[in-house]
Design a protein around this nucleic acid. Structure first.
Lengths: 226, 226, 226, 226
DNA sequence: AATGAATGAGCCTTCATTCAT
DNA sequence: GATGAATGAAGGCTCATTCAT
């Protein structure tokens, strides 16, 4: 595991920087603290990275790479598996990735989304677009050719949101319980199963093109057939 | 005469502060700019509010109150309407509220969630809990008494997330298109309908307790009956 | 005399800044020292002037205005006096101005010429051009209408140079004797008389259009007639 | 083979240092840039020269030697030529030397005069004194034994100034046109001739001991005879 | 009630210099 | 002989806060 710890000063700085940026955000993080925690001189960041901005970009890039490597997007599901199975893989991978304590890129991303510094715009776009393309493709496969482009994007957005937002809340609740409300997300596997079930039903409903049953209490007849 | 506009210096400061906090976040907003934009003296904030922190809290509280007043949680749906109708009301209200350009509280909240200052923790909790309780109650009603507490929370979380996250992305894409990816959210009514359809299907699936159909492509028989 | 000493902090800062900029130049002058000497807080300059650059510009402008006011370009000679008398006035004014210990603008100008920061370019141009125009006009008057534009500029340049450069050396010799060689410039009035005599002879020679006598030792015949 | 170009790291550093010191002055030049431009390691200067100060001194010494070698003070005029001819030689040599783009010592000298670092004081003195002695001797020869020591120094100073100052302006105008005013110094030979004519007339006037003609417009009678 | 002046702590950055290799 | 890493001192600037009026 610990086969290549941050041994050089530069690696240590990067590693510490990720921590601090996650904890405090770009603006509140100070180079002084990063250097101090890394046991380096106060000018070390500027020597190795040139500026705080560069360090920030480098930090996210590094965290993102580690995060995706630890949790590949397909969730370990072979590419020739059924679509629903591959969806499960993606959902599981996304949730696990965010849940992973060492997935710092996600939190930097969240800060960046909420209060963009502009420094990560290009880097994030270039890295995230490919991931999104894959999910969109899978969504189209699930919805079938009759689905409109808008329907595909809406469904993708819904599924991603059901993974993202709750996990953000969970993480916040762990970090600062006074801010986020509890969400019963201790049982991650149960949550993954829920998202899966909810998503498939939603996708099926969109695909069926039927207007939603006006009252779910009336769906007994339908359920019986499933 | 002009009693509704912020006429007093203090009101003007509060109004400007909301704008600036939304634009730049707590850390990047400066009292100097707020005072300048408000046409007030550089010491005005500290005179009227005592500190930047207090101003921040007041700003969110003020923005939140205005936002909820403009978009009541029930979406205008009477309390004796069917549950699905009331769900539609809540979803529409939430989405509309976030979409509303003058709903600044939401964006402050987002920043606070992504990068908490800790200053809004208590204020936000106390204001948000009642709203959430209502949604949870509605969700329980939809799921029926057999549903577990966990299922209720999961479903509530899923529905809220499907509203929240996409709208955040939309707003970000409007503000800084280079950061957020496009999401086809121009047609808000279509999106509301989508969330409604997706949610009801998901809730129904959870309620039915059935394992999700393994392959949505096999649901043809069921769909025909719905 | 001391009717309006720098009483406000801003005036004191400006006054001290001129001193320090003259002593050390733009780059070696530090805001810390300026503030310290002015008995002000370390952030005072940025409060009153916004930046070191602005202070620098303001300092030169202020010094130049004081300098020209103390030594008007015409040297006190009425505009209807003979041209040679007005030339004497300008030469005396220029030399006296530079010699004046309180004429700090000149030394800032010298530094700026030798190693331009670019910050004073526009300010200096706009202030110096009018002065130069006057001298050029006088020179044309002395040289007569037959003189070419080039001859006018050359003569003006020569006269100005004979005033400027030696005075720079003198000031340097006073400040740091080890750098500049001695130039017998203690007797300022004698020097002014020398420049006057030298200039008039030069101008007359140029005006006469004659080739310079090949050997001054042969000029006896000519001198006798003058 | 390539023995004349700076081949060793040390020579290259020296060569680059001259360039950079000329461009930016002592303070604004950085060792980092010098090393970078020389393709050397960031610690190379301190390794080869011990300090920035030493490098500066070496740089000027080197530039000065090259400059004087390229433009000997006598301007190629034999020592047994008439005094006026030798003066022409010195004037031409000085002006040509300053005009020469590769004469970097002059510009370092100018910076040093305008804003002395003190580092070149001794070096410059020792190198410049011999040159000045020669010019003073020539001046005494031209003025004759009756001239006072002061008159000799004044005349020498005037002639030197008429060469120095305009050429500084010219160079500055070439480098940063926005700072220095134009001076019609494109035609260098014409300028040399002007200085020669102006100088000889001035020297003759001083020598003649006559008070300058009060009004050059009255000199018609004299001019006719010259 | 409100303001202009002033403050001090802290931040990012630069750069000549040093040191171990 | 030469280098890459590292250092520490210092500088300009920002900004919330305070104070006298």
């Amino acid at each position: 595991m610990a086969s290549q710890d941050p041994t050089t000063t530069k690696e240590k700085l990067l590693s510490v920087a990720i921590e601090v940026f996650v904890e405090k955000g770009y603006r509140d993080a100070t180079l002084a603290e990063i250097c101090r925690r890394a046991g380096a001189n106060g000018a070390a960041v500027n020597y190795h990275f040139g500026s705080k901005e560069t360090l920030y970009q480098e930090a996210w890039r590094c965290a993102f790479a580690a995060s995706v490597q630890a949790h590949p997007q397909d969730g370990g599901v072979p590419g020739d598996s059924p679509a629903t199975e591959r969806l499960r893989g993606q959902i599981r991978a996304l949730i696990k990735r965010i849940a992973d304590d060492s997935s710092r890129d996600f939190f930097i991303s969240q800060m960046e989304l909420a209060n963009p510094t502009g420094l990560l715009a290009e880097v994030m776009r270039s890295q995230l677009i490919p991931l999104r393309e894959k999910t969109l493709a899978l969504m189209r496969e699930l919805l079938g050719p009759q689905a409109s482009e808008q329907q595909v994007m809406f469904c993708e957005m819904s599924v991603i949101s059901m993974c993202f937002h709750p996990m953000l809340m969970r993480r916040l609740h762990q970090k600062t319980p006074q801010v986020a409300l509890p969400s019963a997300l201790e049982d991650l596997d149960a949550f993954i199963e829920h998202v899966m079930q909810f998503s498939l039903a939603g996708i099926a409903a969109i695909k069926s093109g039927l207007p939603p049953c006006q009252d779910v209490n009336d769906r007994g007849a339908c359920d019986a057939d499933c």
